[in-house]
Design a protein around this nucleic acid. Structure first.
Lengths: 114, 114
DNA sequence: CGGAGTTATCGCAGAAAGACGATGAGGCAG
DNA sequence: CTGCCTCATCGTCTTTCTGCGATAACTCCG
């Protein structure tokens, strides 16, 4: 077993590698559209905010924070995960979600470059 | 008639009033979701890019820039307009669209604040 | 007034999103 | 092994999005 446990965050990748992907052009346009679509729902905005705030990653507690059914929240998490904005790591019987800093940074960069 | 004409941009509001609206909280979350949804389509990203690039506002030329029917482009413009991201001003027989700098700034600010 | 050019709206059809309950899959404790 | 807890997936329904052609509205020019 790993030494990751209670206080230890399950997703600690604070790597600050430079992002070489373009901020403009067709690829960036597609990326912006996809990332925007992923975040284009109040529930998903709240999820992202939760995960950003808690550098330590919350888990199914997200369900408790939202007025939605567990299956619905799971769907939203799936959308965010498929967009690459968050990551889920299995930690025993539960799953620990956290922000994918790279992708969030990319989103911010493209938007800022508008 | 006004002195606005060919080279004159029809939407010249370069006012840089400070935006006092919140960057966080429920209101900002709703705003971010709405703005993201408005831009969450490749065609609409391209439209926004076009209007940002050309500080002078293009018009129905947008239709020529996109591989979509005129009615479809008009729909996308409507979405962006309803989100407050762009503005359309009637200029003779045609309509001149331009970015609404305030709203775009707000979008950038909220995203940057994530 | 009447035609021409430009844009908005309508109606439709197919695709996708959103929400939920029910069910399945997997780990952990006993 | 069995039950429990957590989470993902499935199936369904409703709503919204997306795209288009057709048509209306609107402006300018003769």
């Amino acid at each position: 077993m790993r030494q990751r446990a209670e206080t230890d965050s399950c997703c600690p990748p604070p790597n600050a590698e430079p992002d070489l992907r373009p901020i403009e052009g067709p690829e960036a346009d597609e990326a912006l559209a996809a990332l925007s679509k992923a975040i284009a729902h109040p529930a998903r905005v709240r999820i992202v905010r939760l995960l950003v705030r808690k550098s330590s990653c919350v888990c199914g507690d997200i369900v408790g924070e939202l007025p939605l059914a567990q299956s619905t929240v799971s769907q939203h998490l799936k959308v965010l995960k498929e967009a690459g904005l968050i990551r889920g790591e299995v930690d025993g019987p539960r799953v620990c979600y956290c922000i994918e800093p790279r992708m969030l940074r990319r989103f911010k960069a493209i938007v800022a470059g508008l």
